[in-house]
Every structure is written in structure tokens, then in C-alpha cells.
Design a protein around this nucleic acid. Structure first.
Lengths: 209, 209
DNA sequence: TGCGATATTGCACTCAGTGGCACTTGCTGT
DNA sequence: ACAGCAAGTGCCACTGAGTGCAATATCGCA
């Protein structure tokens, strides 16, 4: 019967309704990003964005929870991407190897969206509240990773410290190489940077200088 | 001449003014924490807090930048504590050893403030916005650590990735052991937990399960 | 064509946080 | 002891994010 499910009717994808929603979501993203870059994040109000897209300010919150989330809209996508990648790895691999492989895969994606990442990265680095929100999302990310790892390693003793440590470390590797990548204008190949960071961590921090 | 410095006149400490300020600051902290625990963080307004302490809402912001900062008031103190500890370490030590030693020192402090930490920890773990703010502070912390390390290791190439990686990893170790400590009711000796985490990281993540 | 789910909007409201201005009072140099 | 200064404090008005609610519009589908 007519359930209130997420309708996915049309071939090859989503129903007209879903498509429209996605389009509008992207429209909001584009308009907002543009305004943020031209007038600054703080200076731009929800009203401004709504006006450009031609929707009511109230509707904005139907699409995004906070103003910050517009900038970080792609975080969630990447997050699920990584988790998928991770759970797809063979079971006999050591956790750290799987993590490295998963993050490397995503790192390649990053390069194709270089421009987008740079734009968003700049706004994020410049605006404390956006940065804060990104940290918050990363924490959720860490949770998911840790959870996935706990299932993978049958260490079972619910979410012990080790998976958390692994997950957090992986994120640290990703984050710091990403930072370096962005700071150097995204010229070096990102996967290489990520690989190097992972290796530094896997061989142990004890051996520095 | 009469500079606008932080005045410290009286013997053994600060002037009357400073003391009053500190007292009031603590009063705000106490009242706020109490309200937060009894009615919830979100539910408590700045006005509520101000009313209890007997100040105007406006004045609250003279003492704290945000409502969240009341809960995290001791973060800054600990931060400077650690940095001090770190710069005090002998130069011939490997960075990671110094980091471990510094964090261990602070870990001992934590145990004497067990109650306080638990109270604040609970509020933090329960409230996304407080948690977010704590992450933000940690990021600043990471910056300071990385900076201190860069000076220490004469790797000089301005804030290269390595010090960042070290700093971030140390924070991960601290954070995850702290989390575990809090979750288990702060019974195990914290320094031991911290030590273990540091060791896991120093021997390398590659060797898991 | 009409039913039901989904999308959109207006309105009223709360509350964090800021800016400006006036007023008090502890501190400091003379 | 006194004057000048700046920190501390308070009040008022204001902006803007975000929410709850209820009314309306739109669209897919039977």
C-alpha cells in the first residue's frame, strides 16, 4: 500500500520529485557558496541566500539544518563512501591496511573535485563556526569508523579503545595531509600525501628526529 | 608608566580587582553548572544564569565568550599547563617521548579534579554544541602543540606535517583514554591508560589484531 | 478527477550574541 | 590625598539563526 517511503520510481534513478529536490538543494548550495565568497560567510544571511534562489527563508531550513552545513554538504557523502569502502575490504587484512586502502580510494576522488574542495576549504579555514561544524561532523565520522572496525575485528568488547584509536588516527592522517594539500594549492598528488601520512603512523611515532 | 597591563599588585597574588573578577567568574561557573545539571544545558538561558549570580545578562559575556565556554573553562588552563611542560623537556629527547611525559604529568592532575571533570564531562558528552566547542578548543590546542614542536625539532620548514601529526596523535591518545576513563566512571588510574595509548601509537598502528 | 503525500510558506517566537553609551570604582602616578 | 585612567558593570536596542505550528500549494498516482 501507499507507504510513506522514499519514492524511487523512474528508471535509472529517482522520481521527478526527488530530482527537483536535489536540484533545488544544489541551487541553494551554489548560490550560498557564491555569496559566501563574495560577501563573506558571516555577512551573508539566510535571507540573502533564499532571495537569490527564490525561496522563502523558512524553506532553507527544509534543506539544511544550519548555515554551516551548506559549506560542508559533501562531508556526509564522503563519509558513507569511506565506510562502504572499508566494509568491502577482505577480512584477513590488518585493520590499518584496510583503513589506508579505503582512504586512498577516497583521496583519488578528491582530486577530481579539486576546485570544489578548494572553494569550500577556504571558507572552512576562514570561518570558525564552519570549522567547528566540520570538526563535529568528523567526530561522527570517527564514530562510524570505529563502529565498522569493531565489527570487523572481532575484538567484540564493545567499541574498545583500539578501534577508536585506529579510526581517530586514520582521520588525523587524512586531515593533516588534506590540510597540507590545500595549503600548497592542491598541486601534489593527494593520494601520495595520504599514503605517506599513513605510513608514518604505521611505522610508529617513536622514531621522529 | 601607567601601562594598561594586567595589574598584579598585592602580595602573593593579584589586586582586589582581579580577585573580584576571579571570584565572580567562579560564581558564574558554579551557578551555571548547577543550572545545567538540574534543567539541562539548552534549557538554561544566559538570563537564568545572570539572575542567579545577580548580574546583567550583558555582563555574562564580559566573562565568557559563549555559553559553552562556561563548561569548558578549565580547558585553557590545562592547555598552557601542557605547553609549559613540553617546552620544559630536555632537547635531546625524541618529540614523542616528550609529548608522552608532558601528557602523563597532566593526567596526574586530572585525577585530583576527578569530580569536576566528571560533572563537566557529562554535560559535554550530552550536549552537541558543548562537544563541538570542545573540539574547537582542541584544534587550537593542536596548533599550539604543533608550534611548540616545530621550534623544538629544528625541522624548521615552517610547521611541516610531522609536528602536526605528532601533536594530533598525542591529542588522540589523550582524548581516547580520557573518554574511556570517563565512561568507566573514572576508576582506573588515568596515567596508566594514557601511557598505554601513547605506547600503542609509538609502536605503530600496523600491528593490530 | 480526486486522494494523499510531500513541499513550501508565513507568522510568531525564543534566545545567543553584539554594539554603543553611561556610570562606577579600584588602581596608579604625582 | 587627589586626579585621571581604564577596567568593570549595567542597560537598551538590535540583528539574525533556528523552531513550532498551521495553512496552503504541488505533484504523483490510482
Amino acid at each position: 500500500m501507499g507507504e510513506h517511503e522514499v519514492d524511487e520510481i523512474n528508471r535509472d534513478g529517482l522520481g521527478l520529485r526527488q530530482r527537483k529536490k536535489l536540484e533545488r538543494r544544489h541551487a541553494i548550495e551554489a548560490a550560498a557558496l557564491d555569496l559566501f565568497e563574495r560577501h563573506g560567510f558571516e555577512e551573508t544571511t539566510i535571507g540573502d541566500i533564499a532571495a537569490v534562489v527564490g525561496i522563502s527563508p523558512r524553506t532553507f531550513f527544509y534543506y539544511f539544518e544550519t548555515k554551516e552545513d551548506v559549506v560542508l554538504a559533501d562531508y556526509a557523502r564522503r563519509q558513507t563512501r569511506i565506510i562502504g569502502e572499508l566494509t568491502g575490504r577482505p577480512d584477513d587484512e590488518t585493520p590499518w591496511t584496510s583503513l589506508k586502502a579505503s582512504f586512498l580510494a577516497v583521496a583519488s576522488d578528491y582530486e577530481t573535485e579539486r576546485e570544489q574542495l578548494l572553494r569550500r576549504g577556504i571558507i572552512m579555514a576562514t570561518n570558525p563556526s564552519v570549522f567547528a561544524r566540520s570538526l563535529q561532523l568528523q567526530a561522527g565520522w570517527e564514530d562510524s569508523l570505529a563502529h565498522a572496525l569493531t565489527e570487523r575485528m572481532s575484538t567484540s568488547e564493545d567499541v574498545s579503545t583500539t578501534p577508536r584509536l585506529l579510526a581517530a588516527s586514520a582521520l588525523v592522517a587524512m586531515r593533516s595531509s588534506l590540510r597540507h594539500w590545500l595549503k600548497t594549492g592542491a598541486t601534489d598528488p593527494l593520494p601520495r600525501l595520504v599514503g605517506e601520512c599513513f605510513d608514518k603512523l604505521s611505522s610508529g611515532l617513536g622514531a621522529a628526529r
